[in-house]
Structure formats: C-alpha cells, structure tokens
C-alpha cells in the first residue's frame, strides 16, 4: 500500500487571539475490518487511523478518536485559538503503530 501522505491547511498569519480554522487530510484506506475478500471469502483485517492529535507549541489543541465508521482518507476540520506565534504539530496514529506527522508554522501580527 502506498504510504499515507498527510496534508494540512493552516493560515500563515493570524491576529493575536484569532480563532483559525485548521483542515487536515491524510490518504489512508481506513480498512474497516467488516469487508470480505471476494476471492477467498476471508475477512480483510482492520487497519485504520485510530487517533489524531494536534498540539500547538506542545500544548494540546484538539484530539480525535477515530473508529472504522470514518470514511477513507480521513478529513478533519477544527479550530484553534492563536495567542502567539508558533508551530502546530499534527499526528496520526495507525493501527499498525506507525505514526504520521506534519508540522505547520503560524505567525502572529
């Protein structure tokens, strides 16, 4: 399977105290564990992103627990209040214990 590629959309600049919208997308099959292999009839084992985390300069902003009912290529939109310049860190946790990461900086005017 192709490597999961995370993408994030974060504004480059914000006013102090502004609430910015963050959008994330990661390419992932999100195999639910309910589907059956058409040739063998066996159940295809579950392999999903089960957790997502967003921190700002190390402080938790937003977290999400994902279940098999989340669509393939999970998209998440949420907000963050920006009081100072810094860096967002986005982390996706896969069932196979791989972790995908992405960083994005924001400036405050």
């Amino acid at each position: 399977m192709a490597r999961s590629r995370p993408r994030v959309k974060v504004p480059k600049k914000a006013e102090k105290g502004e609430i910015v919208t963050l959008k994330t997308l990661i390419s992932h099959r999100m195999e639910s564990g309910h589907r059956k292999d058409k040739k063998t009839g066996n159940r295809i084992p579950r392999k999903i992103i089960n957790k997502f985390e967003c921190t700002f300069n190390g402080d938790p902003v937003f977290k999400c627990d994902l279940e098999p009912a989340v669509a393939a290529n999970p998209y998440l939109k949420f907000t963050a209040k920006v009081e100072r310049a810094g860096e967002f860190l986005f982390k996706w946790y896969d069932d196979d214990s791989s972790i995908y990461e992405k960083k994005a900086k924001i400036q405050v005017s």
Partner: peptide, 9 residues
C-alpha cells in the same frame, strides 16, 4: 486552546 467547540469529519 481550540477556541470553538466545532469539528467536521
């Protein structure tokens, strides 16, 4: 720090 309690999926 979320600022708003709002999310999309």
């Amino acid at each position: 720090l979320s600022g708003e309690a709002s999310a999309s999926i």
